[in-house]
């Protein structure tokens, strides 16, 4: 008489056996005590495993983990805040310099009103800027009004971008 093996019993438990095979098996175990006994043992093992329960984790686990992850999170946030503050400060400073130069710069009057001359062109003189930067005369020679304007606009755009990003995150 051919006996069934462990692989078959496992397939029975996982319901991977066809109806015909099952029928043949049940006919077989009516006669075969060894297979019947083995199948019952596998069934008991399976039933026992189905009663597997969760093991309760220690209650303090949440606090311990949160303590560990909150520190880097706060540090990261502070670094970001510091970066934004420095950037804002720099931009405001540059804007102020640009404003002062544009408003009061120049020893020779060009006419016109406020920031514009008679022809409607933007009035910009680097004399004050040159005075401020006189210790760095070689650098000041490289700086043209256009480049100051460009850098200021660029930094303002970066500042606005970061402020928008920060607002979105909060």
């Amino acid at each position: 008489m051919k006996h069934y093996d462990e692989e078959f019993f496992n397939k029975m438990l996982d319901d991977e056996i066809t109806a015909e095979e099952k029928e043949l098996f049940f006919v077989h175990i009516k006669e075969c005590t060894a297979c019947r006994e083995q199948y019952r043992l596998f069934q008991s093992a399976h039933t026992l495993l189905l009663s597997l329960t969760e093991i309760t984790a220690p209650e303090e686990i949440n606090n311990l983990v949160l303590k560990k992850i909150m520190k880097p999170a706060a540090k990261k946030k502070n670094e970001k805040r510091f970066f934004i503050t420095v950037l804002s400060g720099l931009t405001v400073m540059l804007l102020a310099i640009f404003g002062i130069v544009a408003k009061f710069g120049g020893t020779e009057p060009k006419g016109g009103n406020g920031l514009f001359d008679n022809l409607g062109n933007f009035k910009f003189d680097t004399s004050i800027l040159n005075k401020i930067l006189s210790p760095f005369s070689s650098i000041s020679k490289l700086i043209s009004p256009d480049s100051v304007l460009l850098v200021t606009l660029l930094l303002s755009s970066i500042l606005v971008f970061f402020l928008i990003e920060r607002t979105k995150k909060n």
């Binding site: 093991i55 984790a57 949440n62 983990v65 949160l66 992850i69 909150m70 999170a73 909060n170």
Partner: peptide, 15 residues
């Protein structure tokens, strides 16, 4: 940025 909400996941999966 709501780091404390992570405890919801911990409660769900810790056991």
């Amino acid at each position: 940025g709501n780091t404390s909400d992570f405890s919801i996941l911990m409660d769900r999966y810790k056991n």
